[in-house]
């Protein structure tokens, strides 16, 4: 059959979510952010909650989320997304609220807000993109930067003696009683994206059922920050990031499922 005969509306099996706005993403070519942002829209569309959801986009590569979605979004100060989310959720408990934070926002400047929102078991979804670097500001060291990894503020590689160790924060958050679901995913293969989508769906359902805080971490590439092509960045990520930040569930339905003595 000719291609032009296949490309017909009735044969359409995949396209981006209708909740994506017209505005083009400002992410670098091949950046994992784009996939996560789109997958969230797919979950929200499929759950039919677009009229009851508020996204929070704090400072970082994700800050322009309000331009990309066709539902309500509030931009937040750097590090304060979880507090803004709490402020919204407490006056509107039956609306869906999610934050979309980078590693600097969640695990550096916003550690306090993140830790305490989780400790209060705020019924929100926290989407946490861990690419081991500050992307928006041009590639500086982040709390999750790996030992020896080069960034503009550790150009000779992160020296843990003077710059601290890579912070694997989600296992810490998983141990807080208010947290019901903690899982770590990636978007470098279609299979992983599908798993991420299930996890995001689970997270939003947890919120609907008021089970406490759900955290979906996505280990992702940063092509411009790492100075690699998208494909090479993904390969480097699998080789290095996954060692320190292994994929998989850490807490499901309030029960820890991770091996606490596994090497971190």
């Amino acid at each position: 059959m000719e291609t032009k005969d296949i490309i017909k509306p009735e044969n359409l099996v995949y396209q981006k979510s209708r909740l994506m706005a017209e505005k083009q993403f400002n992410f670098c070519p091949g950046c994992g952010h784009g996939v996560v942002v789109r997958t969230i829209a797919e979950v929200i569309e499929e759950m039919g909650i677009e009229h009851d959801v508020i996204g929070i986009s704090p400072v970082g590569c994700s800050v322009f989320l309000y331009d990309f979605y066709k539902f309500d979004v509030v931009e937040a100060a750097h590090g304060r997304a979880c507090a803004v989310a709490t402020g919204i959720k407490r006056v509107q408990p039956d609306k869906f609220v999610f934050t979309y934070q980078g590693d600097g926002d969640l695990a550096a400047i916003g550690t306090g807000e993140t830790m305490h929102a989780c400790n209060r078991g705020e019924n929100i979804v926290i989407v946490f993109i861990n690419n081991g670097i500050y992307g928006m500001t041009g590639g500086q060291m982040a709390p999750t930067t790996l030992e020896g990894m080069k960034t503009t503020t550790c150009p000779r590689g992160r020296d843990v003696k003077t710059m601290g160790y890579p912070l694997n924060i989600t296992p810490l958050l998983a141990q807080l009683d208010g947290v019901c679901y903690v899982t770590r995913h990636s978007v470098h293969t279609p299979g992983n994206v599908r798993k991420l989508k299930k996890a995001l769906r689970q997270a939003f359902e947890n919120q609907r059922d008021k089970k406490g805080t759900s955290i979906v971490e996505v280990v992702s590439n940063c092509n411009s920050g790492w100075g690699l092509s998208p494909k090479a960045a993904n390969d480097w990520m699998v080789e290095n990031m996954f060692k320190k930040y292994p994929l998989g569930d850490m807490k499901v339905d309030g029960k820890l499922v991770m091996d606490m003595n596994a090497p971190r």
């Binding site: 059959m1 017909k8 979510s17 996939v35």
Partner: peptide
């Protein structure tokens, strides 16, 4: 084009969602 089976993997992986997939 003739090898395409419409599995949607490319559509899913595209960061900017520029690919739409058809299958028959």
């Amino acid at each position: 084009p003739e090898s395409c089976i419409g599995c949607t993997n490319c559509g899913i992986i595209c960061p900017d969602g520029v690919i739409s997939v058809y299958r028959v």
